[in-house]
Design a protein around this nucleic acid. Structure first.
Lengths: 225, 225
DNA sequence: TGGGTATTCAATAGATAACTTGATAGCTTG
DNA sequence: CAAGCTATCAAGTTATCTATTGAATACCCA
């Protein structure tokens, strides 16, 4: 077994994908791409990195097979390469949150006080009975790239002046990018200060897309069926 | 959004776990630990690394929350820290195999010619009807640490001289560490050369343990239910 | 065809990581 | 308590990674 060159090549090849997850900048880019495909420039702006640096990190992600690249006129649009790649990123994120106290701590510090949540099952029931209204508080472009069926788009920074659009007497459920995104937290606080009843959906669009609404608790990895 | 320190800290913390997957040596250690807990020395020997180097890599894995550490007299025994961590490693492995041609290529080169396979569902049926016998061809210590219910242990290097133990007239199903392990391939070839009917189970012990037998095809990530 | 923009390439300096070697600490046994 | 073993630490060398800068390329549009 000592230094079998073929086996060694196998692990080396897998490590290429592992390296993709070794930089916080790349993780942030991946997290942005999990919401919607974007161009290099959009990603550079959203992540606060230089264009060149963003491009280089995207190439690492591309070499690892995590993202696809497509020319669009003068721009190049990157996207997560598939549901399996998306699920892998979410798994890494969730396992690290479960296993690393530092991630939990950083998440709490970033999100602020917890707000009341609702699960996918209960949400579907309340929506079907007309008791609740579902609001996507992400930026409009991300809503356009994909959203939960039946949701209406009110980006967080427009929420305050568009409160009237929300029917009174119905509870408002807000969702955003996922459990580590602050938008829905802030939306719920804004809504409550406006005297509305509001909760946060405990999954984001990527988790929903992968099927969180079809089953109960989140599960990981191969063969959970 | 530009350089939010709290958000940046979050990705930095997650990247700590990402870094764990960035080295082929660590991946090999993780792969070994996926079969059974082991001491530093055992891991060093199995991976062909120096003791000190192995220890350092294990510390990185430990800092990432992927493995646990327990003193056992004069030794220290490491183990994968839980089913979620195990599933994450298997997902990384499988997604990289699906997305990176180089991984596929290296796997084929390592495993040699394909042999006929059988799935968990069909296996359970044949076992229940007494038509097949299931053999675990991994080293005995890995069998002792956990194995598929009803399997008998015949390590690959003992298979040839223990052929008589296998009842004639029944198909032999061999399994080992997983889809990237060569043991079961070699076992099937050995058995066929001895005139026995044999197939390879298309999952290994870790996949089975995580529930591959309970459902059909492998699925990835959160919320597949 | 030429100007403008988006992306990538190339080169560099600074930071991090990998592996080796030799020393240290913890446990077991005589 | 001393000897012997296992694991970890510390220091040093080499290799790799990151981010920056400035140049080059690809595309669009006039």
């Amino acid at each position: 077994m000592r230094s079998d060159p073929a086996k060694s090549a196998l692990f080396q090849a897998i490590a290429l994908m592992g390296k993709a997850f070794a930089s916080p900048v790349r993780l942030e880019l991946l997290d942005l791409l999990a919401q919607a495909p974007r161009t290099v420039d959009e990603l550079a702006q959203a992540s606060g990195q230089s264009s060149a640096n963003t491009s280089q990190h995207l190439q690492v992600l591309h070499a690892a097979g995590m993202v696809t690249r497509a020319r669009e006129g003068t721009s190049v649009r990157y996207a997560v390469s598939g549901d399996d790649a998306l699920a892998l990123w979410l798994s890494l994120r969730d396992v690290s949150a479960a296993r690393l106290a530092e991630v939990e701590r950083a998440a709490r510090a970033y999100l602020g006080d917890q707000v009341e949540t609702i699960g996918p099952q209960e949400l579907l029931g309340r929506l079907a009975r007309g008791e609740a209204v579902l609001v996507d508080v992400r930026p409009a472009t991300e809503f356009a790239a994909g959203h939960i069926d039946g949701a209406r788009s009110i980006p967080l920074d427009e929420l305050e002046r568009r409160l009237a659009e929300l029917p009174a007497g119905r509870e408002v459920i807000a969702y955003c990018r996922g459990p580590f995104c602050a938008y829905a937290h802030r939306a719920v606080r804004t809504l409550e200060q406006a005297g509305r009843q509001a909760r946060r959906l405990n999954v984001g669009w990527p988790e929903w897309k992968l099927g969180a609404h079809a089953a109960g608790p989140l599960t990981f990895g191969p063969g959970t069926g």
